[in-house]
């Protein structure tokens, strides 16, 4: 397994405040990795440390095996970065800005011009001739994406990339990010959990500088599965309700219109017992669905557990 990002006991203090506490991240090459957490969790600090814009108090970090502290320019060679509130030179046009920042890469002039035109088209700014100072927030964000991609990076670090975009812009951005899967490693921080759920393979949940979880979304779902089952039937039956309430594998039962929402103790047993019960009572079972927790539910539960475990 090749790692695009690895941090070892990465710690950052601002005065007496501990912003990041011994963070050990491992991000696989080609994956789309989401860094989740409430405000002040340490997401931006982590990204700024990885770019070399800030120095850690202690710990190490590697991008594709290159030590960010010992060989910063080597580590940044294949890096694309977008800050949360990207700021550009207002007197430049989008094209001029991309040509300017692209000049720091090893691309030839011809390659850079072609890359610039391609990216302007990708972010639909190819027809815009006015200076950046006249851009809307959404246009700036799109230019931010283009400048992060200008050097054909192997790793993209995006700090809240969709926060300033409207729903359509967000959808397009997430599609663009999704299309990079496999070729480019994307490391993004976000507080919009639906976005992370949509594009990320793996997530890390941070709170107050501490890593609470780091795993694939599917394994998080398994671990935090709440054993909720939704049943849909065409006819209400008192006998069914009574037997479900008495069943030792049922923890809770709620009625929601024509649907029944069960919380069960053992999902495996429920999957066997429910069809049997309907069959015995001669009732039609239109739908049985084991409900997976959303990332938001998992996120809240992880934070909740952290709170409860505090001494």
């Amino acid at each position: 397994m090749n790692l695009a990002i690895e941090t070892v006991e990465l710690t950052k203090r601002y005065g007496t405040r501990l912003a990041l506490d011994r963070l050990n991240l491992r991000v696989e090459e080609g994956s789309i990795f989401g860094l989740l957490g409430p405000n002040g969790a340490g997401k931006t600090t982590t990204i700024k440390l990885l770019t070399g814009l800030r120095r850690p108090t202690s710990g190490k970090m590697f991008l594709f095996g290159d030590d960010v502290l010992a060989r910063p320019n080597q580590a940044r060679k294949d890096l694309g970065y977008l800050s949360e509130h990207p700021s550009f030179y207002g007197w430049m046009t989008a094209r001029e800005y991309l040509l300017f920042v692209g000049s720091f890469s090893s691309m030839s002039r011809k390659e850079l011009r072609m890359r610039t035109e391609y990216l302007l088209g990708l972010v639909t700014l190819h027809r815009v001739r006015e200076p950046i100072r006249n851009f809307s927030r959404g246009m700036r964000q799109r230019l931010g994406i283009a400048q992060a991609l200008v050097n054909n990076p192997k790793l993209l670090l995006l700090d809240e990339p969709a926060s300033a975009l409207d729903p359509l812009g967000r959808k397009e951005l997430l599609e663009t990010i999704g299309s990079l899967r496999g070729g480019v490693t994307v490391f993004l921080s976000t507080h919009i959990l639906a976005d992370a759920e949509r594009v990320c393979d793996t997530v890390c949940i941070l709170n107050q500088g501490r890593m609470l979880a780091q795993e694939t979304i599917s394994s998080l779902r398994k671990r935090y599965a709440r054993r909720n089952v939704e049943l849909e039937t065409t006819s209400e039956n008192e006998e069914l309700l009574l037997r479900l309430r008495r069943a030792d594998w049922v923890e809770d039962l709620k009625r929601d219109g024509g649907n029944l929402n069960l919380t069960v103790k053992d999902i495996g047993r429920a999957e066997i017992e429910i069809p049997r019960l309907f069959s015995e009572l001669g009732l039609p079972l239109k739908k049985i669905e084991v409900k997976e927790p959303t990332l938001e539910e998992i996120f809240l539960e992880v934070l909740d557990r952290e709170e409860n475990e505090k001494p």
Binding site: T51, L53, R76, Y81, Q147, N151
Partner: peptide
């Protein structure tokens, strides 16, 4: 920020 995150 956007400049110094590059190999400059």
């Amino acid at each position: 920020e956007l400049l110094f995150a590059r190999p400059t």
